[in-house]
Amino acid sequence: MTSQPSSKVDTVALFVTCLVDLFRPSIGFAAVKLLEDAGCQVVVPPGQTCCGQPAYNSGDRESAMAIAQGTILALEAHPAIVVPSGSCAGMLKRHYPELLADDMNWGPRARSLADRVFELTQYLAARGLRIDAQVAARATYHDSCSSLREMQVKEAPRDLISQVRELSLAEMAETEACCGFGGTFCVKFPDVSDAMAQRKVDCIRATGADLLLAGDLGCLLNLAGKLKRAGSTIAVRHVAEVLAGMTAQPAIGESGTGDSRMGDSGVGGK
């Protein structure tokens, strides 16, 4: 089912995702750098907002369909769509076709788009990108449920991480268990979500890692929030930041080195 990215495809559209756009643009810029390193020309279609999961998973099918149509309209002209999130990629790839299946116009367009949607590490690994980065750390990688089960992404991020110099990867136990984020779940059932996050954090700590990586910002915000509340010194980053060697930004949930001027990210203008 999953089509392979063609090495001839040079233009890729980045679907940046609402969380990256709002919380951590540096992940977007890391993704751009990696895609450019892989020989792609990156465009960011301006019509994109959110993939629509909050509506879809709350049962608001009507809004989800409208948002899906808007997203398809924004992205469909491009030969490949790359998403730095398994969850949003899964929405575009697996759920849009189901959501719009009965629509004579949008159904085929959703299926056509779905064939060209890739999770970031999946796309980079398939294009054979050689990683040129150095990050001294003992890392552990958290598989997001959507990456694992909707996008079948398991080896790609690990293959790429293994190329980072001075970085070692320690697998945690229970890699297939959810971190407790689940979109609106974590605010609807905060106590249950916390119990799940606690078990995940216990597994992370048991590895002795000082760096937690994942490919989904939702999980990362959840786990960073949990780790930081507990005073943990484990740094939390999106895998793209490490692969791109762009670790000058403070890790997720951490303060800068005294310079907290808004937007002074130092990565946007390069």
Binding site: L22, P25, G225, K226, K228, R229, S265
Partner: peptide, 10 residues
């Protein structure tokens, strides 16, 4: 139960 990581700003 957890902190909310802050947006980077822009």
């Amino acid at each position: 139960h957890r902190d909310l990581p802050a947006p980077q700003g822009r």
